[in-house]
């Protein structure tokens, strides 16, 4: 019952990062090639989805509020929490150039307005967060209520969470002078930071 995999897809549909958090070697385990196919499929389906919005809806666009409420301390240890074992990790937890205790502290507008945000199946749920520069952050979870009590809350939490992955990406990938844009991410610090975000979700 947690985030099982994180994928980052660049703006041309190439997979630049994937990480499997499911330590069980299940039969459904995907190999590297499967992830590549998955990434480009997600990219295409996302683009198609944004095109298939019924025309009627476009003529009189419904007033949709794309604001995502802020859920505090998603993926980041809560400094006010009474859990002492957690508390110890707080001081050592560094958010890079982001001044803690959290990466951001208010509601924000989703950039993903007509694409797929959440895909629910009987076996897993997929959340997609897209940046203004066209980067897609994809999280795969084991069930609908993986991040909240229902699908809607779960989606909000996922957007909060994935925005933090974006923050970490901007911090450890973009600021690595030897990283070439659009290429696979090899950074260990980034990997560890993503892992700690996922671990702190529990």
């Amino acid at each position: 019952m947690s985030i099982e995999a994180i994928l980052i897809v660049n703006k041309s549909g190439g997979l630049i990062y994937h990480r499997d958090f499911n330590n069980k070697t299940s039969a459904t385990h995907l190999n590297g090639n499967d992830y590549l196919i998955l990434a480009s499929t997600v990219h295409s389906v996302f683009a198609i989805a944004s095109q298939v919005t019924p025309k009627a809806l476009k003529l009189s666009p419904p007033k949709i509020d794309f604001t995502i409420p802020y859920h505090p301390y998603v993926g980041v240890p809560n400094p006010n929490s009474s859990n002492t074992s957690n508390r110890r990790t707080v001081s050592s937890q560094k958010l890079g150039s982001f001044k803690g205790p959290d990466f951001f502290n208010g509601p924000f507008t989703s950039w993903n307005k007509s694409g797929i945000r959440q895909l629910i199946t009987d076996h897993f749920t997929m959340y997609i967060y897209q940046s203004l520069t066209g980067l897609k952050f994809v999280a795969l979870g084991s069930s609908v209520a993986v991040l909240g009590k229902n699908a809607a809350v779960s989606n909000e939490v996922a957007d909060n969470f994935l925005r933090k992955v974006y923050c970490v990406y901007s911090e450890y990938v973009m600021k690595d002078p030897f990283y070439s844009l659009e290429m696979p991410i090899k950074s260990k610090t980034f990997d560890q930071s993503v892992k700690s975000l996922v671990d702190n979700l529990l």
Binding site: S97, F98, F103, F104, S131, L132, T133, L135, R163, Y166, C167, Y169, S170, E171, M174, K175, L181
Partner: peptide, 9 residues
């Protein structure tokens, strides 16, 4: 690169 930092913030 910096634009990503700006947007993430």
């Amino acid at each position: 690169r910096l634009i990503e930092d700006f947007l993430a913030r």
